[in-house]
Design a binder for these strands. Structure first.
Length: 561
RNA sequence: UGCCCGGUCGUCUAAUGGCAGGACAGCGGGUUUUGGUCCCGUAUGUGGGGGUUCGAAUCCUCCCCGGGCAACCA
């Protein structure tokens, strides 16, 4: 607890201020929000922000949140997406009040349309979409009234009923709201509210052949559910006027729409359309490719719900456009994983090390902590022998002074084992070092070191005769530029060709295989001195495959840039 | 060039007429059997002009810059 009052002053985002005011002034006694995805794609980290805003606000104010599938366009939607969305929201750790579908309100929405028609506020227009577009005007010039604008309510009702009963083919006519063709807001120029689509709907089947548009469905659905705060992204701002118009004319619950800036993340893209292209064109291996900013991709890569939620909390909510540095996401992953990941030793780029004063057939089991951040995780035993694998990077000929690792004549500590001194190397015909020869100091045993020898560096290692071969997938950013959507030309031109690096000949300590055989569900790991890793969904005890979630901070690599 | 929205460290985000603060990134140092973690320190910001005021990031005004708006998408 802080005893400094200044530190306890909590700062609120603009939505919290609105809710505070609404509660204070008695406009509402509790709040109800909704998360309204269209089931036409997988959820991404941008949706996580929206989920966090909607569910988070409700949690904070002891309200609730509905999960509502905004399924007014059956052409692009499917149950597959419905299921993946439910799964992702649950995985992130949020619980919705009701699982709802805009399509559940189709009959009610139809009645709303009828009311508008009878009140002279909607009409059936037989114009083609080209004609409608032509009469719409432009942002700088007013539109022109449709020749069908003055049909009588009776005529309109009869035609609308025929639309519903399937007497017209797709595109034959539409229902429009009758507002103002000269409005400076293009959306108020008699917007289309119902269109004919003879398409089977994933939730309502063949019941309907006319479907409401977003504008005619969203606000009314909010009103039907008594949503107090309908929170959406900035691009819907111009829709607010229309949203309010329908609620006013239909005299229904006055839900209010508020807009915040969507999340953009550096070095990736965040639109479903672009993500779909990456999948369809084979630039990635599906929606859950670990390089994708989708929830399923992040999950497969080893990000945790806690890390993603913390990220959403840290980025805040405001109305200015933003591009969040992906390093913040990575920070949140490391922060969470550091506390929970089991430490294991895995050599990614092996170089053989021989301890010349260790008997060839002698093996000792050395204990090493599973997680120094959490002693309750205990220890495991690692076999130590005469021949070990170490990282190629951990040896250098003619090493500079700042190099704290192995070089002829220098000492290092082998983590949880002994201090060794490098005596000699073996080279191949090309002059490359293929073997490093060292002597170990018996009195430097980990935990009971009486040698007095100083070692500046500590290396991870794996016993050659006990090593388990594993496959490791290393990832880099998917794009070469900070904001691909901002660049000239096709965003796909900026894809990083080296975003995936598959290592097939890495060696792991045997405990990792034991884990795979024992644990009922995958665990998060830190491969010591390398990074955080998570078993890929294709991994089996016979063929172990790990995805790099995020690397450890590496100040040595930074120094060498 | 019509209407709407926005502009605070490199990137986000606070400060709601009263000392421009925090986080990530950066830089420097300490601890360390992970060049990790942890700890300490440090540089960097109110788009510009004018006005109101004892006092302006905050209010007014003009300008500049960025974004959105002409799907039977959401």
């Amino acid at each position: 607890m802080s005893n400094n009052p200044a530190e306890e002053k909590e700062s609120k985002n603009f939505l919290e201020e609105i809710i505070d005011k609404d509660l204070q002034e008695g406009r509402h006694t509790s709040i109800l929000t909704r998360f309204p995805p269209e089931p036409n794609g997988y959820l991404h980290i941008g949706h996580a922000k929206s989920i966090h805003v909607n569910f988070g606000l409700a949690e904070k104010y002891k309200g609730e949140t509905n999960l509502r599938f905004d399924d007014t366009n059956p052409v692009t939607e499917s149950v597959e997406y419905v299921e993946s969305i439910k799964n992702d929201v649950k995985w992130l750790g949020f619980e919705w009040k009701d699982e709802l579908y805009t399509s559940d309100y189709f009959e009610q929405l139809y009645q709303f349309a009828l009311k508008l028609i009878r009140d002279g506020l909607a009409y059936v227009d037989d114009s083609s979409s080209e004609e409608i577009a032509a009469l719409k005007g432009t942002p700088t010039s007013p539109g022109t009234n449709s020749p069908y604008r003055n049909r009588t309510p009776e005529e309109n009702e009869a035609l609308f009923n025929k639309m519903r009963s399937g007497e017209f083919p797709d595109g034959h006519c539409i229902l429009r709201a009758k507002i103002d063709m000269a409005s400076p807001n293009m959306l108020m120029r008699d917007p289309v509210i119902y269109r004919i689509k003879h398409v089977k709907h994933h939730h309502t089947g063949d019941k309907w052949c006319i479907y409401p548009t977003y504008d005619f469905a969203h606000g009314q659905s909010d009103a039907i559910e008594n949503i107090t705060h309908s929170i959406c992204t900035l691009e819907f701002m111009p829709h607010r006027e229309l949203y309010n118009w329908f609620i006013e004319k239909l005299e229904i619950f006055p839900s209010k729409q508020y807009e915040f800036a969507r999340l953009n993340l550096s070095y990736t893209v965040m639109s479903k359309r672009k993500l779909l292209q990456l999948v369809d064109d084979g630039h990635v291996n599906g929606w859950d490719d670990p390089r994708m900013p989708t929830i399923s991709g992040l999950r497969r890569r080893g990000y945790t719900p806690a890390a993603i939620r913390e990220f959403c909390k840290r980025i805040g909510v405001a109305k200015r456009e933003n591009v969040i540095d992906v390093s913040l996401l990575e920070f949140c992953a490391r922060e969470d994983l550091n506390k929970h990941a089991l430490r294991r030793m895995v050599v990614l780029n092996p170089l053989k090390l021989v301890i010349t004063n260790w008997d060839a057939d002698k093996v000792e089991l050395l204990e090493s902590e599973n997680n120094p951040e959490n002693p309750e995780d205990g220890e495991r035993k690692m076999p130590f022998g005469r021949e070990l694998w170490i990282e190629k990077d951990d040896f250098m000929e003619n090493a500079p002074k700042k190099f704290f690792r192995l070089s002829v004549g220098r000492n290092v500590r082998l983590k949880s084992a002994f201090i060794i001194t490098c005596d000699d190397v073996v080279k191949n015909e090309a002059g490359e070092v293929v073997e490093v020869h060292c002597t170990y100091h018996p009195d430097s045993r980990s935990g009971q070191d009486t040698s007095g020898i100083k070692a500046k560096g500590t290396l991870h290692w794996v016993s050659v005769s006990h090593a388990v071969p594993v496959e490791v997938h290393q990832y880099d950013r998917l794009f070469k530029v900070n904001n691909p959507a901002d660049e000239e030309g096709d965003f796909k031109d900026y894809i990083n060709p080296d975003s995936l690096h598959v290592i097939t000949n890495a060696y792991a300590e045997p405990e990792l295989k034991t884990d795979a055989e024992t644990f009922s569900s995958p665990r998060h790991y830190q491969f010591m001195r390398k990074g955080y890793y998570y078993p890929d969904q294709t991994s089996t005890p016979e063929k172990l495959v790990y995805n790099q979630t995020v690397g450890l901070r590496d100040t040595w690599a930074k120094m060498n840039k």
